[in-house]
Amino acid sequence: MNPPVRSAFVDGISFWAPRLPGWELARQVLRGETTAPAEPARRPAPALLPPTERRRAPDTVAVSLEVAARACEAAGLDPATTASVFASTHGDLAISDYMCDTLVSTPTLTSPIRFHNSVHNAAAGYWTIATACYAPYTALSAHTSTFGEGLLESLVQAVTDGWPLLYVAYDIEAKGPMATMAPSAGLLGAGLVISPRASAHSRLRLDWRVVDGASHPPTVASPGTLALVQGNAMAPCLPLFEALATGRGEVSLALGPGLALGVEIVALECRG
């Protein structure tokens, strides 16, 4: 039995990695129209945040707010009324390293700011503060299937609630001894605005279905793309963004050991 294919629309795309800082550039690089800059860009400044939150923002917040804001801009969407799904494989690895290290030596001298930034939903929390958003968010992880599971939850919410939704996926660089067991390098953030209906802002159609994992192994990104985000834990998002860059293509994203999310990117005939 073939599971039903459902359609959603991609209204906004964003991307940030040090060698691919921004979707326009990333799109051209992934299409082979230009080469990536040799010099990595500096971490984006979370300009949206009020000063108090801005000076406390760790890398997870900086990179995810950057792609969240750009995706909403591209979609012409008001973040204040937009529900969101935030996905990160490991969360804030730098703070986890700090916490574990401090607990060994001086547990009673734990930083309250870093502790309250350590929650997996810190990026989502800062985003809703920055945008005065009362709409729900979630924050999730599924190890190597994090990107696929987060995208699936976004598609499901768009279907059930009937509103455009923001999807943000990110991981940051691992620090200290933790890096051996939860490896991740550099910063990577990717954002999508997914809408259940076509609108003037819709760029592409996204046809999706949940399929058997054994017969649909995860699509692997091209070696050139992988080299540009060297070892970031969110690298499984890359095949989808390659398809989004060319405006067509089929990819399979892992959903754990047994399932996969099959996605086909389809160009829209007339763009608004």
């Binding site: 108090t52 406390r56 001298l109 734990t110 930083s111 309250p112 700011i113 309250h116």
Partner: peptide
């Protein structure tokens, strides 16, 4: 704010 006071105390 209050979190800053806690950080300063630490």
């Amino acid at each position: 704010d209050s979190i800053d006071a806690l950080e300063i105390a630490m």
